[in-house]
């Protein structure tokens, strides 16, 4: 039990008795189990995506690529519809994140100002929507009445602002920017707007980072809006195309010249693995940044909640 020292530190009494040792051993067994159960599926998908389709179909792939090949990725980059869907997703994510963060900041800052008398009413007005909603069909009808079906904005507007995020901003501004700063600024003739752009935004950088990440991941992963509001194949984001390929087993978007080189079924399988990887890579690239801010964001939210 050489781990004991690292664990118990100076507290000598810890993990001496039998029940304690059983507990510690159980915890380590559990950790190793969790590690394996999380990593194995991921490694399997990565390994399969680099394996020869014939080996995959024969069920020979475990955790290492068999007969290394990049054919699955070739298909992706040679398929115009996949590339298109990828860039659609990029633009929904970029524009959506900008719109969402802007709206959330515009709502969060005034609501943090205790000298704004109407804020109680507005806050109540916002909070109600966290408990009641119109539901799928009425929301769909509103979106369709606005003429947003099959438009770019159908992916941006219906889920543009999360009230929970507004509360996060409000809490952050209230608790981390002292009101004395505003008081002295307003004596110097600083307007509410100027105070917002010159003081609040620069001082709120950490929470804005959290917002950007929350919204960007949400937009990138959004499948629901596309399923409901987009029928036009040219507008579909990657998640919807993924659904067609991964779940519906559809073969749209295949590069024909490659499809002729091998059986369609094999190529389809291959495409599924490589698409999983390609669609997850952007979020995984963000992950190191996300994880630092994300924990903070959740904690800031829970202070209030």
């Amino acid at each position: 039990m050489h781990k004991k020292n690292a664990v118990s530190g100076t507290k000598v009494k810890l993990y001496r008795t039998l029940p304690d040792r059983i507990l510690l051993a159980a915890v380590w067994v559990m950790m190793i189990f969790i590690m394996l159960i999380i990593l194995i599926p991921v490694i399997f998908i990565v390994a399969s995506s680099f394996s020869d389709p014939r080996a995959v179909s024969a069920g020979k792939v475990f955790l290492w690529p068999v007969d290394f090949t990049l054919v699955g990725y070739d298909v992706i980059f040679q398929s115009p519809s996949i590339v298109k869907a990828f860039f659609n997703s990029v633009s929904y994510t970029v524009v959506g994140t900008i719109v969402s963060v802007t709206l959330t900041m515009l709502a969060g800052y005034p609501l943090a100002r205790t000298d704004l008398k109407i804020r109680g009413v507005v806050m109540f007005f916002f909070t109600v929507t966290m408990f009641f909603s119109g539901g799928m069909i009425p929301t769909y009808l509103v979106v369709s009445k606005l003429g947003l079906i099959d438009s770019f904005w159908a992916m941006i507007l219906p889920s543009a602002m999360g009230v929970w995020n507004v509360i996060l901003i409000k809490t952050y501004v209230q608790s981390s920017i002292p009101s004395e700063i505003f008081e002295s600024a307003s004596i110097d003739g600083c307007s509410d707007w100027k105070y917002f752009t010159d003081m609040v935004i620069p001082l709120s950088k950490p929470i804005i980072a959290v917002m950007v990440l929350l919204y960007a991941v949400g937009k990138w992963n959004d499948f629901f809006s596309a399923l409901l509001y987009l029928n036009d194949v040219n507008k579909q984001p990657l998640q919807l195309l993924l659904r067609n390929v991964l779940v519906e087993n559809d073969s749209i978007g295949m590069a024909m010249n490659l499809a002729q080189q091998m059986s369609r079924q094999e190529l389809k399988t291959q495409l599924q693995y490589s698409l999983i990887i390609v669609s997850s890579v952007p979020v995984m690239l963000l992950y190191p940044f996300i994880q630092k801010y994300f924990v903070k964001g959740i904690m800031m939210g829970s202070i209030k909640g």
């Binding site: 709206l103 959330t104 515009l106 709502a107 800052y109 005034p110 100002r113 704004l116 109407i118 507005v122 007005f125 916002f126 929507t129 009641f132 909603s133 119109g134 539901g135 069909i137 009425p138 929301t139 009808l141 509103v142 606005l146 507007l157 219906p158 889920s159 543009a160 602002m161 009230v163 507004v166 307007s191 509410d192 707007w193 917002f196």
Partner: peptide, 24 residues
């Protein structure tokens, strides 16, 4: 100025949260 800032968020909530509730 704060009222002006709230216009867009409030409009969003009315259109995409309260209008569907009415649609019930």
């Amino acid at each position: 100025q704060l009222y002006l800032m709230l216009i867009l968020p409030v409009a969003y909530i009315i259109v995409f949260c309260y209008a569907p509730m009415g649609g019930i």
